[in-house]
Design a binder for these strands. Structure first.
Lengths: 201, 201
DNA sequence: CGCTTTCTGTACTATTCACTACAAAATACC
DNA sequence: GGTATTTTGTAGTGAATAGTACAGAAAGCG
């Protein structure tokens, strides 16, 4: 693939800023303050552009948020595929997922919690639905992974994992320290071990 | 006590509405939509009054919210004192607390989740601090209750309970059905039993 | 060069936000 | 009745919101 080289520039006046970098900057803003608390003026100021340039590039606030969510799932989301391994006990992998979530949710003190989980609770319908759709996809992945070896418990255990992640994200945003959050995640992990013990290795 | 009879009416023009009932109506609004999504105009319209009457009675939006939180803890909050019994196993009582939380968080489909937990994440500093203060008080009650018989595990287990409640509130607001939420709470309750087993009855 | 296309900056729109100035109304006290 | 006191309705305040109209600038294409 061509990494930075564009084959043929478009016709008109060139854009003064890089849209991808704008999405990255916006991601930090949304993650730090939440969707509702970020205004278009905040974004245009951070990008050093004016409103018309913003709307030409992203269409709307929700449109920008959709691109932010895409970027988040591509670069910052939890690596489900790596964590949920078929060659390891299900509970062990889910526990590792929760631990990694706890670590990631406080990795950047200026942008705590999960961008997607927090996005599902914003006050804008379009942005909320976009975040919920992404969250629903992740929960399907988790439930399907569990169901392969624990079909009976899949729904309940997947719900527990999703609720634990939501709770960890909330507590991360409430200012919990990394150690404290990790201890909670480990306790939830032990609950998973107990719940799925003795059925399949 | 005098229930509805006031001994001596104040001097000036009588108020056209009942402030206590206004707080109750506002509580429903805040619980249903969240603090940020409720405007003064929403409240004045719901109470059938005009802005000056509102500000004369409640001072500000955050002032009204403080009174709503007071009313919530007095009438709708979980009955910690009844649930956390000294004559029953700690884990059993905490599990009952989580089950009751799950039930209450979806009891009214138009006002899901916990008013306090959700309030800790709003975008207004004053309202957020008020909700956090109330939440902190509840978590002290829980930790103190655990510490009486399980001092070593008190902090970690209390954090787990608080995180579970935050997660349950989040999932309630995400539209989970009562049965599903209850199953999650029961699983968290089993985790508590496991964590506190064998130390004290 | 001249034309088309795209973006940019200036300056706006209309709406909503929390909150208030002010004078009239409605009561208690004398 | 007269006066003091408090609440009321009308009609605003200034600030912030998301989003735009428009004309000019900057590029590619012929």
């Amino acid at each position: 693939m061509n990494s930075t080289e564009s084959v043929s520039r478009p016709r008109g006046r060139p854009r003064r800023f890089d849209a991808e970098q704008g999405v990255a900057t916006a991601q930090h803003l949304f993650h730090a303050r939440g969707y509702d608390a970020v205004s278009i003026a905040d974004v245009t100021e951070a990008l050093g552009i004016n409103p018309p340039s913003f709307y030409a590039a992203f269409g709307s606030k929700a449109g920008l948020y959709a691109r932010v969510l895409d970027r988040y799932s591509a670069t910052d989301a939890l690596p489900f595929a790596d964590l949920l391994r078929p060659d390891r006990p299900v509970a062990e992998c889910l526990a590792a997922l929760l631990e990694m979530a706890a670590r990631q949710y406080v990795a950047d003190p200026a942008a705590t919690g999960c961008l997607v989980v927090e996005g599902t609770r914003c006050n804008d319908l379009e942005a909320r639905e976009a975040a919920r759709s992404l969250q629903a996809g992740a929960e399907v992945v988790i439930r399907t992974y569990i169901a392969a070896r624990h079909p009976q418990e899949a729904q309940r255990v997947a719900d527990f994992v999703g609720t634990a992640m939501a709770g960890l994200s909330a507590k991360a945003r409430n200012g919990f320290e990394p150690d404290r959050l990790l201890a909670i995640a480990r306790m939830a992990g032990r609950a998973l071990m107990q719940e799925l013990s003795g059925k399949t290795a």
